[in-house]
Structures are given as C-alpha cells and as structure tokens.
C-alpha cells in the first residue's frame, strides 16, 4: 500500500486539543492499517498533545493566536508528523524528569514528548517554528 499523507490546520486554542488527538489517531489507524498498536498510537497522541499545548501556551504567549499547520506521512510501520506555527521561537528545555520528591507541577511535557516518540526535531524556519515527530510502530517501535 502507498504511504498515506495528510495535512490540516487548526486554531491555536486549547479547545482543539481533543479534535487534534482524534485526528492523529484516525490517521495512524489508516496508515498502519491496523488498530493493534493502540498503546503506541496513544504515545504519539500524547506527544502531539504536549507539543500543541506548548505552541499554544508558549509560542503564542504574547501574540494573537493564529493557527498551527500539521502535515503527516505514514505507512504500516512509521508515522511522521510535522508542525509549523508563526509564534515566538522556542528555547527547548532539557527533557529531564523533575525530581519526584519535589512533586513539581510542571516540567513533564518535554520529557513526555521525548519518551513517546523515536525522534524529535525543532528548527526555527524563518519566522516560523518547525517541529518534526517521528514514531515507529510494531515490534520495531522504539519509544
């Protein structure tokens, strides 16, 4: 089967997190041609949710919220999702887990993204932020 491709654009609002996760799930099931990798699909949904939340909360913190572009490619073993936004540049925090004893109420997002996908890339592309998440599925799924 040929690789699947998709693209969408969603408003930079927390109200669109749930539809975005559903969209990612549907795309994964279509590309993978199975619902067998539910746990790994959930991990990708979680990474996407964390990334989208960061874009909405941080990239557009001092700016009027615009939209986020998403493009995806996938086949029966791998899904790659790319994101573009016109918000402020990110300073990526180290993806370290907060100390358990401190019971921090923040700092888990970057760690979860890193844990839930096989590769994360970020670039400042002109006036836009560019993110790329790569997730492998099945027995060779790494994350």
């Amino acid at each position: 089967m040929p690789a699947r491709i998709m693209s969408c654009r969603f408003p930079a609002s927390l109200h669109y997190l749930t539809p975005l996760r559903h969209f990612v799930q549907a795309f994964c099931v279509d590309a993978l041609e199975t619902e067998a990798w539910e746990e790994q699909v959930y991990q990708l949904q979680l990474a996407v949710s964390e990334l989208a939340t960061n874009i909405i909360r941080h990239a557009y913190r001092d700016l009027p919220p615009e939209s986020v572009e998403v493009a995806g490619t996938g086949d029966t073993s791998e899904v790659i999702l790319e994101f573009w936004d016109t918000g402020s540049a990110f300073v990526r925090p180290p993806p370290a887990l907060p100390e358990l004893v401190k019971l921090a109420e923040g700092g888990y997002g970057s760690y979860l993204i890193q844990q839930c996908v096989d590769d994360v890339r970020y670039e400042r592309d002109g006036e836009r932020n560019y993110w790329r998440l790569e997730k492998r599925f099945g027995e060779r799924g790494g994350a």
């Binding site: 996760r21 979680l46 949710s49 939340t53 019971l103 109420e105 923040g106 888990y108 997002g109 979860l112």
Partner: peptide, 16 residues
C-alpha cells in the same frame, strides 16, 4: 481515557 502533563499537574496539585 487520556491524561497529559497538565492533567498530571492537576493531580499533583490535589495531592499537595
């Protein structure tokens, strides 16, 4: 059926 880091933060807040 779904929780992310913000959801975790709310549970930690409740615990504290």
């Amino acid at each position: 059926s779904f929780i992310d880091s913000s959801g975790l933060a709310s549970l930690i807040s409740g615990l504290k």
